[in-house]
Nucleic acid binder design. Structure first.
Length: 268
DNA sequence: GACAACCTGACC
DNA sequence: GGTCAGGTTGTC
């Protein structure tokens, strides 16, 4: 589900409500999602209050007092704040009872994870340590250097160690807008092609954040609200639809292990 | 690089 | 029944 724009939207919506809110109790119904083990997870969080909300790639980082709660949503994770009593979302696995309202973690496919670590351990955390640069803070010159590898664009851009935050939707959408074939070898791009790709990544991510992310399946933000960037998708999930540029049918193929949508005529 | 694994559900 | 799904990790 959530790629960079979605996690950023979740971060912003939670940051509107939660700083200062105190955790009174944590209910854990699916122990495998949390670390350390549930008893310790609960004990550490009880009495803590939310401080600031940060993001790295697709990872949400929630600061408390000397601790950080890392949340990775994987495909179907949701973190939803309910200020007033309300029915909990389907597939709720964690409930944080707060001094005002509740925070739900729901996850249909149960692939997400929440890990509580000391703030001092952030920099050396194995997941964070391996993440590549933030695409929206990446100068073109650095991006161009990342492309100098013998690897297909689709695989390269999906690799979180190369660049952190793009997922299947945004890779397909940016490659289409840049007119680049997903199987094109990255190192064969001219500087002009690379610059176009860099610019398109900036534009698409910013526009997707502005429109609060893509809700194609079950993504909602920290208030339970859907995004609208899916209305601006040009190829993702549009197999056989006419290409918006040339009218030829959009192709679908498995590339780098992922379902990939592209126009074989416009993308070279 | 390909593929299976982790889960549940939607769709053909 | 089969295939696919916004992610990541481990195995060959």
């Amino acid at each position: 589900m959530p790629e960079l724009p979605e996690v950023e939207t979740i971060r912003r919506t939670l940051a509107k409500h939660l700083p200062g809110r105190k955790i009174e109790e944590v209910e854990i119904r699916l122990p495998k999602l949390v670390s350390p083990e549930p008893e310790r997870f609960q004990a550490l969080l009880r009495g803590q209050s939310f401080s600031s909300f940060e993001r790295r790639g697709k990872l949400l980082m929630i600061h408390l007092q000397g601790l950080v709660l890392l949340v990775h949503f994987r495909l179907t994770g949701q973190l939803i704040y309910a200020p007033q009593p309300q029915e909990e979302p389907p597939y709720t696995h964690l409930v944080f009872q707060l001094d005002q309202g509740r925070l739900f973690y729901a996850d249909l496919r149960q692939f997400g994870w929440l890990e509580l670590i000391p703030e001092a351990a952030l920099a050396s955390h194995p997941f964070l340590r391996r993440l590549g640069p933030e695409p929206l803070e990446l100068p073109f010159e650095d991006f161009y250097r990342l492309l100098q590898r013998r690897r297909r664009l689709k695989a390269l851009l999906l690799d979180q160690e190369v660049i952190a935050g793009l997922g299947n939707i945004y890779v397909d959408e940016t490659l289409f807008r840049a007119g680049l074939h997903p199987e094109r070898q990255a190192h064969t791009l001219s500087e002009a092609e690379a610059r176009k790709l860099w610019q398109v990544i900036q534009d698409v991510l910013q526009e997707a954040i502005r429109t609060r992310g893509s809700s194609v399946r079950n993504y909602v933000d920290g208030e339970g609200v859907e995004g609208t960037f899916q209305e601006q998708h040009l190829v993702y999930n549009k197999r056989q639809a006419p290409c918006p540029k040339c009218g030829q049918p959009i192709a679908y193929a498995k590339i780098a292990g992922r379902g990939t949508y592209f126009c074989p005529r416009c993308q070279r």
